[in-house]
Write a protein that binds this DNA or RNA. Structure first.
Length: 454
RNA sequence: GUGGUUGUAGCUCAGCUGGUUAGAGCACUGGAUUGUGGUUCCAGGGGUCGUGGGUUCAAAUCCCAUCAUCCACCCCA
């Protein structure tokens, strides 16, 4: 096969048709964000590695795309360092920038950097691509768009409530049935504390996160494998078996971890949030899921994850509260909470469920057939008038065979074609063809605009 | 990082246990219809069978390697 050009693994091109659908998602999301008082910002694709490293856990650091330093990067490391072949040390010498892994950490950096210009609480949204050096598979890309909304500088649980409302409204508009799973890192920390394995919180949460996927027995196996003592695993069992309503679950949980200060605080936060949510009219299902963990290191309070009920797909939306992210950049004591919509997974879900709207309001409505210079001269003023009336219109740029021009209009799904030749010009009229019905009618320019305006 | 799947025309794929000029549908180009697309009919162009090596009289087909791909695990949007 002849060599074909290609793009890197896990990246994609977007055709005009795909962009129409992607813009439908972005426009929907933006509309809801603005409705709740969020403002847009953008940050660069690349950040200093010092900004990104250490914020996402060990796994996250591995998945960062690093950018090779410009110039003679091979001169920087010493012979000794080159011989060591230690990738981590070497990376520090030859790369100081990386592509952003998410939008939350760059946002925290932004907040600290412009703290004097920002009036808190600061509510921003940001829709940009992020990059992860993951192995691509279904619903997983190396370049994908996140749509983030965050509030920073307020620890009110009203923010958590509004984020759930935003999720609810976005997916209601997109007509995706969803379930919002909510948990709290403080509860997870409380659990780890109570079973006497405070330092193993990551291993414990990662294991119990798999409860509905691999079942209780396998979770216990994994916990033991990771070196959690039998006694601790036993203490965990009542928590893994919790059932009932949200308040029932929380009451049972309180008996077990209530004497942990952190755990109690987590329970209080969840009670408050669910009390708020009870008073809202939500379309989406909301549940307290004590097995929800989420890998990102920086979460400290509520955590969210949203799944589409009718589609096979990982979470399409996720987020949570982070109390000290800005502290990493030298601005302690500022709490933030936010959520991120995965535009590409939402796209895949909408495709799976065939939920994209058929109407394409942004495409061409009228095309003028081109018969040559004389006809052009007649059509161009009419075309200008049509555009002035706000109607998307164009003229075929070349004088080619009519069937070619018609085929082109057809492929572009243009609903009306204006055919103007000698006969029409003699009458000062336009032959307007409806491409759906095939009907044609002779009209003057004013009538043309009137017909197309409806 | 670990395991598996698949690589044949622009796209989606067929090609049985190795056998002569490698096929189909869609797409494309031309014609039937020199001012009419979407339907129909006819004709045409387009393929180092991912790459490299091996077995064989003979390889798209069997073996090895390699690259790419998709899927699953890990982790995550």
């Amino acid at each position: 096969m002849a060599q074909k050009p290609s793009i890197p693994k896990g990246t994609r091109d977007f055709s005009p048709a795909e962009m129409t659908n992607r813009n439908y998602i972005f426009d929907t999301v933006k509309g809801v964000f603005r409705l709740f008082g969020f403002q847009s910002i953008e940050t660069p694709a690349m950040e200093n590695l010092s900004t990104l490293m250490g914020k996402y856990g060990e796994e996250g650091d591995k998945l960062l795309f690093k950018i090779l330093n410009s110039g003679d990067f091979a001169a920087a490391p010493s012979d000794q360092e080159l011989l060591e072949r230690n990738s981590i040390h070497l990376t520090n010498k030859i790369s100081e920038k990386g592509l952003r892994y998410d939008l939350t950490v760059p946002f925290a950096r932004f907040v600290v950097q412009y703290r004097n210009d920002i009036s808190f609480p600061f509510k921003r949204y940001q829709i940009q691509p992020v990059w992860r050096a993951d192995r691509p598979q279904k619903g997983r890309y190396r370049e994908f768009y996140q749509c983030d909304v965050d509030i920073v500088g307020s620890d009110s649980l009203l923010n958590e409530m509004e984020l759930v409302q935003i999720v609810d409204q976005v997916f209601a508009k997109l007509k995706i049935n969803t379930v919002v799973k909510i948990n709290n890192r403080k509860i997870l920390a409380g659990i780890a504390e109570v079973i006497g394995e405070k330092d193993r919180i990551v291993d414990i949460t990662v294991a119990i996160d798999k409860l509905d996927k691999i079942g209780l027995e396998k979770v216990n196996e994994e916990l033991l494998e990771k070196g959690i003592p039998q006694t601790a695993v036993e203490k965990l069992q009542p928590i893994l078996n919790l059932s009932g309503s949200v308040s029932e679950k929380l009451a049972q949980l309180e008996k077990v971890i209530g004497h942990s200060e952190t755990g109690e605080k987590g329970i209080f936060e969840m009670r408050t949030l669910f009390a708020y949510l009870d008073n809202l009219e939500l379309t989406t299902e909301v549940e307290l899921d004590l097995t929800l963990a989420r890998g990102l290191n920086y979460y400290t309070g509520a955590i969210f994850e949203v799944k589409a009920k009718d589609a096979v797909m990982g979470s399409i939306c996720g987020g949570g509260r982070y109390d000290d992210l800005t502290g990493n950049f030298g601005m302690p004591g500022v709490s933030g909470v936010g959520i991120s919509f995965g535009a590409d997974r939402i796209y895949d879900v909408l495709t799976q469920l065939n939920l994209f709207p058929a109407a394409t309001a942004d495409s061409t409505k009228l095309m003028f057939v081109n018969f040559g210079p004389a006809e052009e001269a007649f059509c161009l003023p009419v075309l200008a008038a049509v555009r002035k009336a706000g109607i998307n219109a164009e003229i075929f740029p070349d004088k080619s065979k009519m069937s070619k021009q018609m085929t082109w209009a057809n492929h572009k799904k243009i609903p009306f074609v204006a055919i103007v030749g000698e006969n029409e010009m003699a009458q000062g009229k336009i032959n307007l063809k409806n491409m759906l019905s095939g009907e044609q009618q002779l009209v003057n320019p004013q009538e043309l605009i009137k017909i197309l305006s409806v």
